[in-house]
């Protein structure tokens, strides 16, 4: 549904989102969905406009994967709106559909609309899915995995504001030139002030950060020079867990990283969004890491 997001320059940007939005106080990203490994999940999408929910990385069967070309869309085709959603000729699942599956592996996933995907995903129809271990515990990424004491999601996304203001469907070639660079829907100053994003803990806290890139650019994450450990990706533990000071997260990828805080830590973490050639940083988002 259409919503608005306030940008750092004070303007209000038209966005599209699912539900009540992330953290209950912003439209983009969409709400975090928490599931438990091995348990049935049911996610209902109600929409008159043509959209879908694709549970990215959960390897669900086709009927529940939300890809309109193979399993239909929720809502009605809108030929009068320039074929909004680009779903002409594809099956409609009606104005309400429940995506059902069993979450197979604990870890970090994402969901997004798969109708006219490049546009709807950019506009903000993106969210994080966290699958908890089978015992429901909230201090490990997977059963037997390393323990953490504090947890953040860093949902990485960019907007090209011209995509949000022009005629939306049936447009000619418009190249993607993002100008808003975010963590959890917040640009730098707001991300630093945002309790869902900025890390404020205590010495010896082991912080899990779930990195989720739903934008289109390769994002390089650094934690102000601090060394962190990469423990999992795309819902699977890594075979070896590198200790690094920066890590690349490509569009659609997820990485789970662990950072141990020490007394007096005060750093600025940064996400650099590279162009698709990897030759230049187009923009960055920063936030704070602090330990008392």
């Amino acid at each position: 549904m259409a919503a608005a997001q306030t940008l750092a320059n004070g303007t209000s940007l038209r966005v599209w989102s699912f539900g009540g939005g992330f953290n209950g106080d912003r439209a983009v990203p969409a709400p975090v969905i928490e599931l438990i490994e091995g348990q049935s999940a049911a996610i209902t999408l109600n929409s008159m406009m043509p959209h879908s929910i694709h549970p990215h990385g959960l390897d669900v069967n086709q009927a529940n994967d939300g890809v309109p070309t193979t399993s239909g869309f929720v809502g009605m085709a809108m030929p009068m709106m320039g074929n909004f959603g680009r779903v002409a000729g594809l099956p409609s699942l009606g104005s309400s559909y429940t995506y059902s599956f069993v979450a197979p592996h604990a870890g970090t996933y994402m969901y997004h609309c798969h109708g006219d995907t490049v546009l709807h995903q950019e506009m903000g129809m993106v969210g994080t899915i966290v699958v908890r271990p089978a015992d429901g515990s909230t201090d490990r990424v997977w059963t037997g995995g390393p323990q953490f004491s504090r947890e953040h999601i860093w949902h990485l996304h960019t907007f090209d504001t011209t995509w949000h203001t022009q005629t939306l469907s049936g447009a000619g070639t418009v190249r993607y030139r993002p100008d808003v660079f975010m963590i959890n829907g917040r640009q730098s100053v707001a991300a630093t002030a945002d309790s869902a994003t900025a890390i404020r803990g205590m010495a010896d806290d082991v912080v899990l950060i779930r990195l989720v890139n739903t934008g289109y650019l390769p994002a390089v994450v650094s934690l102000g020079g601090l060394t962190f450990q990469v423990i999992a990706s795309d819902g699977r533990p890594l075979r070896a867990t590198p200790m690094v000071t920066q890590w690349q997260v490509a569009a659609g990828e997820r990485y789970d990283i662990l950072l141990t805080l020490t007394a007096g830590t005060l750093r600025e973490a940064q996400v650099d969004y590279y162009n698709i050639r990897g030759t230049a940083v187009l923009g960055s988002a920063t936030t704070m890491i602090q330990a008392s």
Binding site: G57, D234, A240, E253
Partner: peptide, 17 residues
């Protein structure tokens, strides 16, 4: 040997360093 099991494979992977 590390990042083996993937649903999204980045080509190119080589921005780092």
């Amino acid at each position: 040997t590390a990042v083996v099991d993937k649903d999204t494979v980045s080509m190119c992977y080589c921005l780092l360093p």
